[in-house]
């Protein structure tokens, strides 16, 4: 398990380098350079060349990338061209907003999805099951921005209960968290249902019943205990995707998180900020996926054992 984790964590490094290089290269390809806006008509050719050299524009792109990554490791991603503030500081100041929203959404999503999924699985084949799975299917078919806008219209414009954007109050969390939680719950419900269905037909539940375990405990302890393994993966993935894809919800609700930060940067052609924002989000995403993977191994004793130090395992 330990060696497996180390291997996976080490593999993180080339992945991050490759992915960030691709992003960096793409951003670098963009027409126009950092210095374009600094060039004034009074500048001589030498001045311009000097300015370009100052930003390493006379060197190959790989050189700039290497330098960029070296500074990234030190938490220095340059300064925003628009505000002049450090990219790292800007990002880390906005990140809690995104994380908080994602966590609240996740709680809402799981709170809806777990009972619904279990309910559907227990009533598999009945009208209740069809109804639940149908709603979940509609849920995964709805674009989050559209759902968000409908909620916004209903509960912010039509009935004025919740603010339409972030204003520092807890109430402003409600609409975005419900929107994003609803999206998460749709796919998690499906996952919960299928995981439970798979577990419900297992023989060990019969063993538990034969022991005299009550039906409630069968579901909660024995069935859910096993079904949780795939569900945890699903939930972890949801969290990773909601952090990386936060831009959509944040656009709808004007949420001052990392998504908004990045998109504003792109729109204002603030390349250092855009590049830094995207690469940091990527690293975050990849790390989340890794954590989900490790968590999966941690929850399932069967997988855990595969990586355990050799011990007597099977002896009749």
């Amino acid at each position: 398990m330990f060696i497996y984790s180390i291997k996976r964590i080490l593999w993180l490094i080339p992945t991050i380098i490759c992915v960030s290089f691709i992003i960096y290269a793409l951003m670098d390809l963009a027409p126009g350079t950092v210095v374009d806006s600094m060039i004034t008509s009074e500048m001589t050719k030498e001045d311009i060349a000097e300015l370009r050299a100052q930003y390493d524009l006379d060197k190959p792109m790989v050189y700039r990338y290497g330098k960029y990554m070296l500074r990234l490791v030190q938490g220095d991603l340059g300064k925003s061209q628009v505000s002049g503030l450090s990219v790292w500081d800007l990002y880390t100041s906005r990140f809690p907003m995104t994380l908080r929203l994602a966590l609240v959404s996740l709680c809402i999503g799981v709170a809806i999805a777990l009972p619904l999924g279990i309910f559907a699985a227990l009533h598999s084949g009945t009208i209740w099951d069809n109804l639940t799975t149908g709603i979940a299917l509609i849920g995964i078919s709805m674009p989050s921005f559209w759902t968000g806008l409908l909620l916004l219209f209903a509960f912010s414009y039509h009935i004025k209960i919740f603010p339409s954007g972030y204003n520092g109050t807890l109430a402003s969390y409600v609409l975005p968290a419900v929107t994003s939680g609803f999206m998460m719950s749709a796919s998690t419900t499906r996952q919960t249902r299928s995981a439970m269905l798979e577990v419900l037909r297992q023989d060990y539940l019969r063993t538990a019943r034969a022991k005299g375990v009550s039906e409630r405990m069968i579901i909660i302890k024995h069935a859910l205990g096993n079904a949780l393994i795939p569900i945890i993966t699903q939930v972890g993935m949801m969290l990773a995707f909601s952090l990386a894809g936060s831009v959509v919800i944040e656009t709808v609700f004007m949420w001052p998180g990392i998504g908004q930060l990045t998109i504003e940067a792109i729109n204002r052609r603030d390349t250092p900020l855009a590049c830094g924002g995207i690469i940091l989000t990527l690293i975050l995403f990849i790390t989340m996926l890794l954590i989900v993977d490790l968590l999966y191994a941690l929850v399932d004793p069967r997988i855990r054992a595969q990586f355990a130090p050799a011990r007597r395992r099977k002896s009749a």
Binding site: V19, L29, A244, I266, T281, L282
Partner: peptide, 19 residues
């Protein structure tokens, strides 16, 4: 593995904003 660790939205944003 590397390709699948780039979320669509992010890649889309980068590609479209650049190209």
């Amino acid at each position: 593995d590397i390709m699948s660790s780039v979320p669509t939205i992010l890649l889309g944003m980068v590609i479209v904003s650049v190209l």
